[in-house]
């Protein structure tokens, strides 16, 4: 494991912790898209099915369990916890996220490295993860007041994607025959989706002003 990969994983972990902190401690999920959280729960559930079939390292297994557990508990919190649910921006969070699932599944059935059940689901999870942030970005744009924690959550998620790209560049040059177009292209698409957000985030940071995305 290289430093970019580790930094990427830690950034991902930090993003989840920030979100859990907001939900668990402040008992608020204002500005957080339940649609995006549901998509992430599906992403992890389909990608990490291999915890039953293959073992890489204790680190790998633990992190998978953390991401599975956190994504499902965030969804449950937002749906069923009374106080948290009340703060949910239901009227604003209207992205038709199920329409993302089917095209990703079809694409995974068409474009994959190996046609096996686990491999197709794994590929599906890559495609779905690439677009899963869209409902969250749309919600941010509609929310007038983005609080710091929600802004930091999206910033950390974007950072994690950027670091994974550096990790792939590093692995490409250090490991023989390390070429994975499916992962790279979907990872690149995913990172590009954050570009706009990053621009406004850095502006607000530079000018020491509250983050606000243009409508």
């Amino acid at each position: 494991m290289n430093i970019f990969r580790l930094a990427g994983d830690m950034t991902h972990l930090a993003s989840v912790l920030v979100l859990l902190l907001k939900i668990h401690t402040i008992k608020s999920c204002a500005g957080v898209s339940l649609k995006t959280q549901e998509l992430y729960a599906i992403v992890f559930a389909t990608r990490y099915l291999d915890i039953f079939t293959s073992f890489y390292s204790i680190y790998n297994t633990l992190m998978k369990l953390v991401f599975l557990g956190s994504s499902f508990s965030i969804v449950l919190y937002m749906k069923y916890h009374k106080t948290v649910h009340r703060s949910y921006d239901r009227e604003q969070d209207t992205f038709r996220h199920w329409f993302l699932v089917l095209p990703c599944l079809l694409l995974a059935l068409l474009i994959h490295e190996k046609f096996t059940f686990l491999e197709v689901l794994w590929t599906f999870s890559l495609y779905l993860e690439a677009v899963a942030i869209l409902p969250q970005l749309v919600l941010l744009q509609r929310t007038r007041n983005i609080d710091n924690l929600t802004g930091q959550y999206v910033f950390l998620l974007g950072g994690y994607r950027g670091l994974y790209i550096l990790n792939w560049i590093y692995r490409y040059f250090t490991e023989p025959h390390f070429v994975h177009w499916i992962t790279w292209i979907s990872g690149l698409v995913q990172t590009l989706l954050y570009a706009d957000f990053f621009f406004y985030y850095s502006q607000s940071w530079k000018n020491n002003k509250k983050l606000q995305l243009p409508a």
């Binding site: 293959s54 890489y56 390292s57 490295e113 994974y164 025959h177 992962t183």
Partner: peptide, 10 residues
């Protein structure tokens, strides 16, 4: 195999 190496990522 090459695919396996990609699967060690999260």
């Amino acid at each position: 195999p090459p695919q396996q190496r990609m699967h060690d990522e999260l």
